[in-house]
Every structure is written in structure tokens, then in C-alpha cells.
Design a protein around this nucleic acid. Sequence first.
DNA 1: CATGAATGAGACTTCATTCAT
DNA 2: AATGAATGAAGTCTCATTCAT
Lengths: 216, 216, 216, 216
Amino acid sequence: MSSKNLDMLGSYQEVADKLGQQAGHKKWEIVKAAAGLFIRKGTLNTGVRDIAEASGITVGTLYHYFKSKDDIITAFLDFAVMGTNEFVRMTTEVLAKLQPEEAMKRALRLYMEYTNEAQSIVLFWHQETRNLPPDQRKRLMENDMVLASLFEKLIELGRQQGIYKIKDTALAAHSIIVLGDMWAFRRWWLGRRYTSDQFIEKQTEFILHGLYNGSI
Amino acid sequence: MSSKNLDMLGSYQEVADKLGQQAGHKKWEIVKAAAGLFIRKGTLNTGVRDIAEASGITVGTLYHYFKSKDDIITAFLDFAVMGTNEFVRMTTEVLAKLQPEEAMKRALRLYMEYTNEAQSIVLFWHQETRNLPPDQRKRLMENDMVLASLFEKLIELGRQQGIYKIKDTALAAHSIIVLGDMWAFRRWWLGRRYTSDQFIEKQTEFILHGLYNGSI
Amino acid sequence: MSSKNLDMLGSYQEVADKLGQQAGHKKWEIVKAAAGLFIRKGTLNTGVRDIAEASGITVGTLYHYFKSKDDIITAFLDFAVMGTNEFVRMTTEVLAKLQPEEAMKRALRLYMEYTNEAQSIVLFWHQETRNLPPDQRKRLMENDMVLASLFEKLIELGRQQGIYKIKDTALAAHSIIVLGDMWAFRRWWLGRRYTSDQFIEKQTEFILHGLYNGSI
Amino acid sequence: MSSKNLDMLGSYQEVADKLGQQAGHKKWEIVKAAAGLFIRKGTLNTGVRDIAEASGITVGTLYHYFKSKDDIITAFLDFAVMGTNEFVRMTTEVLAKLQPEEAMKRALRLYMEYTNEAQSIVLFWHQETRNLPPDQRKRLMENDMVLASLFEKLIELGRQQGIYKIKDTALAAHSIIVLGDMWAFRRWWLGRRYTSDQFIEKQTEFILHGLYNGSI
DNA sequence: CATGAATGAGACTTCATTCAT
DNA sequence: AATGAATGAAGTCTCATTCAT
């Protein structure tokens, strides 16, 4: 499970380098190790000692790269935010040329695939928000709003062309996100019954029908 | 907000007595106080000292009633589970006499009202599961399955009468739960835009249309 | 050496009770132990573990009584300040009935005796000021000004009666304090050559002659 | 303020070379940087990292020049001691040709000017002694005795010529030093009210009158 | 029943020092 | 010479739990 998350994070390697010049790689290693622990045990149950051990260094060294535990969490969140922004950017680009209906199907698939990869972030979002300092929490909320507005625009587009009857596009957008996210936070049940593809297909249909006819 | 949660818990007073003979009431007071803190700050950030203070007693006394902090959490979960069971029992009873479509509408409203009241439990479920020992975690999962099967049965009923086309009733049931729960865990956004009633109405419609037509 | 300091502190026992009702005594024990260490090794070189050990308790218990190391230092300073205030109050009272010259002699003796007893505080003042947070530092400075104004008033009195020619009474007052304090901070040399009484007598004479004739 | 101290140290450049052949200069730079920090924050609050940074090098390099933090402190003390010795040598030379009274006035002025420049050392002496290992502490004490004996000789001279009545020349010498040093360690109050010159003039008069008449 | 003092393991963090490059 | 990554001991503080009163 956690390996997947880390792979996903790994794909933003280029972005990782922004953490620092040469130090980037090592900081990255640490964040990856920390991410794995954060997801498995939560930030509160993960000690800096655990992170150091998982990174193959000692606590002293850890503090050579990060000046506090919060700093590590922040770095982890940086990737969450970067990841989402990247996802939105890429998705927007892809969808530009498609018809509304096709675009929505495509977006749903992309988002669920993203959710599949970025489970760690989704779970973090659902489970750790409360334990974060307010400014970090705000970052995550804003991050979520960026996602929501992506879907809202797509719905709005379809509605203008008379494809969807749904009126409250904002709420629908949020519902869509939640229905995608559940792949991450209900994995304990879904994972035993569906492949990722199956889930995507079924969920897409459920959502589309909700959109087609919802008249409120 | 949290007072509502506690009121909800309060309605299961009769069940509280099972905790002990005379001690029941006091234990109950403590659990109520603890619940409020758990929801606001999480179990990890809530100290036994906080709980004692919120209960108007001292740590020493607290340990007369509960033999550990985990014990308090367990007691809290007892109520979560009892609450859900009670909800399912009552709902089942109410729905018995209704037509499938009406029953579903009713069930959705009841569930969302329950979610509204029992936010604490929903949030706990979404956020704290990971911090619990495996056996406790399992209890919560089972609890969730009980809810899911309630909805699954309702869907199945409608499908047999040709009302719903949706095929995967289990997944649909889980989706419904998630769409209800989001009232609790996305309150930060929903709370500013919708009343509880508005949310219920809109969400019901979205769900029903998903069910009507979903053909997978 | 340090036993003397603590005895001196001990004489303000009654004041110690203000620290708390029943807890007062224990807090007092801890502050006494801490004071001994602070004087011998400085606040920075004194660990909370050292204080706990010297108090015959464990660190956990220490933090039951004080919420931080700074808190202990503050409590210690409380006594410094109380001690000085008490000294000023008592001295003022005693001097009220005396002629200026006699009053000054008396005040000098009292102050040096006080310095003798309260070495710990004098040393603390001279050596640790820099390591204290600004507000604490300010308290000590104000404390020192209280002492200075005591002497300044006495000088002023004598000057009005034509006994002293010295003009800058404020500077003279500060010089007097320093000449008394040196008994504490140059003890390493003075202690080997003078008894407390000898020092007081000699220093009094030196000071008085400075006052009689200083015309600037 | 601290720049002055360092300038003062800087004037003993020739002495610095004794530290090492080629390395002398660099070591000197480091000690100067360290001195500034020691004075401002104390030795305990100054990290080797701070020293390195203030010297424009890195920790690793620092340890090429000094084998420990204590080593740097020792080097700093070397300058304190050298400075005092230099001061005593120069002063003795200057005074040789003057009459006792004039010599004393001159010595007082020179000492206070020196104190003004070498605040760092004075403060160090008053505040950090305790944190030093015994042998270093002893060096500083001896240093102080050298100063004291300078003044003692001057007093003795005046006494022999019947100018001063004071009997305890040693104590008087120490008092003089303290009255000069207070310019450094009570700067927080004196600095706001007097210029260096004003202080020197007033203090000289106060001291002289103490010497003229003190009969003990 | 109730108290709150006492405990000690463990959390986060700092820092002087070493060493491979 | 110079670097800075690495170390680990030690420091301050928290907290669930126990126990004598």
C-alpha cells in the first residue's frame, strides 16, 4: 500500500529538487520515509526517531536536513499540494478539446486514477487535518477547493449545453470528489471486491446519472 | 456543535447503565466529556487529565472508573456501535411498511439526520480508526457494514421491483453512506452553504438518480 | 557558602507560602535546591534533572510543581525581589529616627550584612542577568533601582543638611551598592583576608569620605 | 559597542601571532568573532556553529584551527590576560614620571578608558568565570590581581608621602577596580545618564576623597 | 470514593565533535 | 585547507498510570 503512495510521490522527483540543491535528494528520501510512516501510523504516532530509522540515518542527521518534525510534515504537504496542482493542470489541458460529456468521463477516470496513486495524500487529508497547525490545514483546504472547482467547471459546461439538469454544481463537485476519495479511505472494503478499473467504471456511471437528472 | 453529539449520545442513557450498576451514571458522564474532547482534538491529543477536568473530577478518580485511557475509548466506541445498531433497528422498523422508493427516501433522510447528530462518531470513524488497536478497529468496520447492509437491502428491494436499474447494490450502498457522511467530514465547506435540510434534499435527489439509471 | 544563601532565603519562609497553599512547602524545597545549584553552576549548567535530584524527587514530580525550568527561575527571582523589598522596608523603618550621618552608617552596615546573607541573589544578578528572558531581566533591574533609591534618599538628606558635598547623588548611590556587592562577587579574594565585620567597617569609611568631599 | 571591544582586541595583533605561524591570522579572526558572541550571549549560549558563521567559515574548518570550543575560550582569555598585562606595562611606564596624586588621577582615567574599551573582558570576568574550568578561572583571578597590585602600588606611594590617610591599601585597590568596572557591568543604567568622560571624572573624585581621608 | 503527588519512559530538539571527500 | 553530513549524548518537557492518604 504505502509503496504505491511513495511511487506516486516519486513521480514528482523533479519537483523534489526544489527542496534544495544537493540536499534535495536526501531530504526527499526522508520525506518518502516519513510519508510511509505518516500514512501507516499518523503523524502523531510517528516519532522523529522512527523517521530517522526508516531513512537509515540518526535523529541528529534528521535535524540536519529538517529543522523540526513540523518541517517534515510541511514538506510532505508540499507534495500533496504540488501533486494536486499538477493533476489539475494536466487534466485541464487534456479536457480542453473534448465535448462536455466525454470530458467528464475522462476527468472522472483521471481523478480516480490519481486518487489511486495518491492515496497517501487523500488519507492524510481525511485523517490528519485536525492535527495540523491552522495554516497547514488551510493549505489543504485550498488544495481541495482547487479540485472541486475543476469538476464544477465541467459540470457547468455540461449544464449550459443542456446535458445535465443538476442545478447545484458546487455541491455536485464536492460529492464527486468524495465518491472518488472513498477508494482511498474505504479501501479496507472496496479493495477486496473491486479492481481499480472496476471501481472507476461503476462509480463513473453512478455519478453521471446523478448529474443527468438531478434537478435541484 | 459538539453539544449535539453529546445529546445524541445522551439518548442512549438506558444503554449506559450496562456499563455498571451504580457507577453507570458517573462513567457515562466521563465518556460524554471524553467524547467531546476526542472529537475536537482527537484521542491522541486528548490527555486523561483533560478528560478528568472536563468531567469535574481528578485523574485519580478517573482511574477508579476506567482502568486505562483505552478503556475510555472503548466505552466511547461502545456507544458508537450501540448508536448505529439502534439507528438500524429503528429505521428498519419504520421502513417495513413503506414502498421501496418511499422507504429509500425516508432512509436517506433518517441517515443524514443521524449523521448530523452523530458527527462525532462519523468523524471518529474517519479520522481515528488508524490509531485504534486492531480489535477496536474491527468493531468499527463491522459497525459500518451493518449500516451498509441496511441500504443494500433497500436497494435490492427497489431493484427487484424494477425501480432501480443499478446492478452493484453493495457498492451503491457504500457510496450512499459516504455521501451522507460527507456532511460530517466536509462540514468546513458544506456548513457555510447549506442547512442540514437543504443538504439532505439535494443529496437525496443526486443519489436517487444514480440509483435509477445506473446499469452496471 | 551556598548553605548561607539558603539560610537567608529560609528566613523568608512566611513569604514562601504565597507560592501556594499546601504545595508551598514542597515548591519551596525545590526552589531552595535549585537556588543552590543555580549559584554554584549557573542556570544554564543546571539541568532540571539536577534540580529534581537535589530535591529528592524525579523530573516528573518536578514538573508537577513547576511548569517549566523558567518557572523555577522565576520563583527564585521572586525571593530575590521579595528579599530586597523586605530589606528596603525594614531599613527605611529603622532609619527614620536617625540623623543622616548615623542613618547612612546604619544603612551601609545593614546593606552589607544583607549582601552577606543574600550572596546568591547578588551573584545571580551579576552573572545570570544576560541569560534571563527580557521581562525577568527587567524585574531584576527594577529591583536594583529600588535599592539605589534607598541610598539616594539618604545621601540627599545629608546633602541638604550640608553634611555631604557630593552632587551626583544617583551615581553615588550606585557606587555604594557596587562597593557592597563586591563582598559577594569578589569573595574569592576578600573572603580570605577579611571577616564580614572588618569589610563593613573599612568599606563604610571609604564610602563616607567619598561622600563628604565629592564636589562633582 | 561590541565593535569597540573587538577593536581593542585588534590592537594586540602582534600578540595574536603567537597563536601560530601562518594560522595566526585566521585563528585571530575566529577569536574576534567568538569574542563578540561570547560577550553578547555568553559562552554557553554561543554555539560553535555561531562562531563559524560569524567567522565566515564552516564548523569543519573551525575545527582545523581549534580543537574544541574550550580552546577558543582559552584563546579569548589569552587576549584578556595579554590585554591586561599590556595595559599594566604601558600604564606603569607612563606613571613613572608623575607625582603620586597626578599618577593616580592618570591611572584612574587610563583604567576607566581601558574598561570602556575592554568591556568584553570585564563582563566576561564578572559573568562567565563560573562556567570556566578551574585552571582558566585561576588565570583570570591572577589577571585581576595584577591590576589590583598596580593600584595598590600607587596608593602606597601616596600614603608614604602623606597624601592618603587610607590604611588598607589592598582593599582600596580592589574597590577602585570595582568602581571602574561598574562602567561595564552597570552600563544598562550608567549608559543612559553619563558619557564615558563624565563618568570618569565623577568617579575619580569619589575615589580620591575616599583615599584622602579613609583612616582604617 | 476521592485525591493529587509521584513516577519514568519517551517525545522533540540541540549541539560539540568527527570524518570522508 | 575546507566542507558539511553524520553522530549520539544530553536537555527540556509530557503524559498515562500508580498509590498512600
